[in-house]
């Protein structure tokens, strides 16, 4: 099984649903960064990232979202993080990011942020 996998799926209202699985660390973060940059180049700034199948994240992985959320918000978008496991959520808590990012329990609640 690959260390890290990303899939993307278009939802309504220009929202992109991104599913990530595996390990998001200093070895794999560039793939995540490329995916987000590609979406920004296509003027897609409303992102919902499903973290429920992400086993692990380090600061290199969290850094991708930190680096991108400002651009998303400046363009009438956002990065909504969905269902992180306790271990993954803990990393956002330790970094003091839980007040900066919006977390959602399901797609409906996540998408509601873009209404």
């Amino acid at each position: 099984m690959p260390e890290f996998q990303i899939t993307t799926q278009k939802l309504q209202n220009g929202v992109m649903f991104i599913t990530v699985s595996g390990f998001l660390d200093a070895h794999t973060f560039e793939e995540m960064e490329r995916t987000i940059n590609d979406l920004f180049e296509r003027n897609i700034y409303r992102l919902v990232v499903d973290l429920s199948r992400l086993d692990y994240i380090s600061s290199a992985g969290a850094g991708v979202f930190i680096g991108a959320i400002g651009t998303a918000q400046e363009n009438d978008g956002n990065i909504i993080l969905m269902r992180p496991s306790p271990n993954v959520k803990e990393v956002f808590d330790l970094l003091g990011l839980s007040q900066i990012f919006t977390f959602a329990d399901d797609i409906e609640n996540a998408v509601r942020n873009f209404a």
Partner: peptide
């Protein structure tokens, strides 16, 4: 300063902070 980090779109420089926290 995490607010400043986000504002400037900085992606790196958080590992040592985590080490100290943990």
């Amino acid at each position: 300063d995490m607010t400043d980090h986000v504002k400037k779109g900085k992606k790196k420089g958080l590992g040592i902070f985590l080490m100290r926290q943990i």
